[in-house]
Design a protein around this nucleic acid. Structure first.
Lengths: 169, 169
DNA sequence: TTAAGTGCAAAATCTTTGCATCAGG
DNA sequence: CCTGATGCAAAGATTTTGCACTTAA
């Protein structure tokens, strides 16, 4: 299964009575140009668009990512940051999951197709149709443990690896 | 591994410089008495306590569930409802995952120990210590699909099964 | 032409925090 | 006693919504 194109998304939207707009095209473009492994919050998406000179209101951003998630063009992630993130919905075999450090919010993608198989099995048992499955592996790094996590670590402490990769708060 | 008792939790807290208080005891009691498969938001926990005549402030609730999650007494769930839920952290072999209907928020628990095994494998690869892993399977039921989901369904529509079980919004 | 989409500001939700006071170890 | 915990109210953060106007199909 290939990724959607703007044209095919437009077709999908129209068939449901929804529309493709310049704002939605710009939003999708951002996701198509996003390096693999990245995901954006509504705020981050808004800022990125602003940097590109695109003034799209935050409400429109929120409404669009919600609709695109419903259309299964985007995938909504609830990781550990307290707000939602979005990424392109890459279907099997590019489906992936996330490891998250609960101290630094550093996120690493990984692929493991057996997770999807196990999820499908559960869906069949309940007679539900699978839309997506997300395995979130909460972890803590050695460095944090050595610093006495969780009691002696301030909530904004980050390991050197997370700082190097810009995951710090 | 057995579930924590209030006494063992107190010991754990004290060893870290934290304290057991009457409020925290009441909060834990609610979770111990909660039927298997249920999980509570901060708001719901607050209401339950109020019904029992316990007036514990919402701030204290939030502070307590956060701390208990850090202590791995509670497990924080990010399902599809837009806010966090908490349940007792049952370690292996009572560890479980969730199927969620993205239309009705109906939640079903399931056990599958292979998920934990796959998660551990990923942690070892990255040299992280596993804290928890949560597989969330987003699904939609046949009834919703037959009603034309997602375009023709109002956002508060619920299938008959969800209504019968009180999962509706 | 007309129902859907947009932008703005205001509201709604959920969660955190400052501070004075209280109390567990 | 001393530091962590509580309650309250106020603030923060994120997301949704009402409404007048615009626009895609």
């Amino acid at each position: 299964m290939a990724l959607d194109t703007t044209a095919s998304i437009k077709k999908k939207l129209n068939s449901r009575g929804w529309r493709m707009t310049p704002q939605r095209e710009k939003i999708l473009e951002v996701f198509y140009n996003l390096p693999q492994g990245n995901h954006l919050s509504a705020e981050e998406l808004h800022n990125l668009l602003e940097e590109q000179g695109e003034n799209i209101s935050l409400s429109t951003i929120y409404r669009s990512v919600k609709l695109m998630t419903k259309m299964r063009v985007l995938r909504e992630l609830e990781l550990a940051e307290g707000h939602k993130h979005y990424e392109l919905n890459h279907p099997y075999p590019h489906h992936h999951h996330h490891i998250v450090c609960i101290q630094c919010n550093k996120t690493i993608e990984f692929q493991d197709d057996s997770i999807l198989k196990h999820s499908l099995k559960q869906c069949q048992k309940e007679d539900f149709q699978l839309i997506d499955c997300q395995l979130t592996v909460m972890t803590i790094c050695q460095e944090a443990l050595e610093m006495g996590w969780p009691s002696t670590l301030p909530s904004d402490w980050c390991c050197s690896r997370a700082i190097a990769e810009g995951h710090h708060k």
